[in-house]
């Protein structure tokens, strides 16, 4: 009884120190930064390797019969286009933002999946990373809104329907990147916490590994899809209204 308590408590406090360390301005902060940065770089390296691999498909002539790599590339791009960028209100916007949304999706997907590998952790279970991504989506949506509507209409939009609604509008606008970032962060972190707690509580390795696969692979993919499609929805709303 005592050992289980000790283990659980140790895991949770360790998790807290490791993940929530940015809430304290502690001495461990630097170490934690390093880990998140290294995980991000691993994800980037994986994605660039994937890009280099898929790039081989483009070497052959258009006339030739598609080979396997090209079929994979076709499937990937078709998936991204039909599921994500097809939801944009205009086709031009979808084509313009296709690289951004696709990179967002692939980065978050690979980040979530990285946590499945023992010894590695997801960069997305760090609030700073998700907040950075969400703020980028926010900045993109505001920039596109300014471009689409013009400065005057854009700033006037904050005074509608009544001028005294200004603070509410600003809060509403700012709450989007917040919830966007917290959603991904919370989901990934919840998966990690649950897996760690179960791993500390139950000795058989099979249960936590199944949980790990479910949370890491399945929920990871769903959360990556949700993150990307919410980015699409936020940009759509910002450009339209």
């Amino acid at each position: 009884m005592g050992t289980i308590f000790e283990q659980l408590s140790g895991t949770l406090t360790h998790l807290g120190e490791k993940q929530i360390v940015t809430f304290h301005l502690g001495s461990l902060q630097l170490q934690f930064d390093k880990a998140a940065m290294i995980m991000s770089w691993i994800v980037m390296a994986l994605l660039i390797a994937l890009a280099l691999f898929l790039r081989r498909a483009l070497l052959q002539d258009v006339e030739d019969k598609p080979n396997r790599v090209q079929a994979a590339l076709d499937a990937l791009i078709d998936l991204l286009q039909s599921q994500l960028t097809a939801n944009f209100s205009s086709e031009r916007l979808g084509n313009e933002l296709f690289p951004f949304i696709s990179t967002l999706f692939l980065f978050v997907l690979f980040s979530n999946w990285l946590g499945v590998i023992p010894g590695l952790s997801s960069p997305t279970q760090d609030l700073n990373v998700t907040m950075g991504l969400a703020l980028m989506v926010f900045a993109t949506s505001q920039f596109l809104a300014m471009k689409a509507k013009g400065m005057k209409t854009y700033w006037k939009g904050y005074l509608e329907p009544m001028p005294f609604m200004l603070p509410l509008n600003i809060i509403g606008e700012l709450s989007r990147p917040m919830s966007h970032a917290f959603r991904l962060f919370g989901n990934v972190l919840a998966g990690t916490i649950l897996t760690t707690v179960v791993m500390a509580k139950f000795a058989p390795i099979i249960v936590p590994s199944i949980l790990n696969v479910v949370f890491g692979l399945f929920f990871g993919a769903i959360q990556a899809f949700v993150f990307a499609i919410l980015a699409v929805a936020y940009i759509n709303v910002a450009v339209e209204n």
Binding site: Q83, S179, G186, L189, V226, I229, L230
Partner: peptide, 19 residues
């Protein structure tokens, strides 16, 4: 697609309570 999007937004409150 719409269901997943709606569920993700619905989940926000759960995520807030988790935080």
């Amino acid at each position: 697609r719409t269901m997943v999007l709606g569920q993700a937004i619905t989940e926000s409150t759960g995520i807030y309570s988790l935080l």
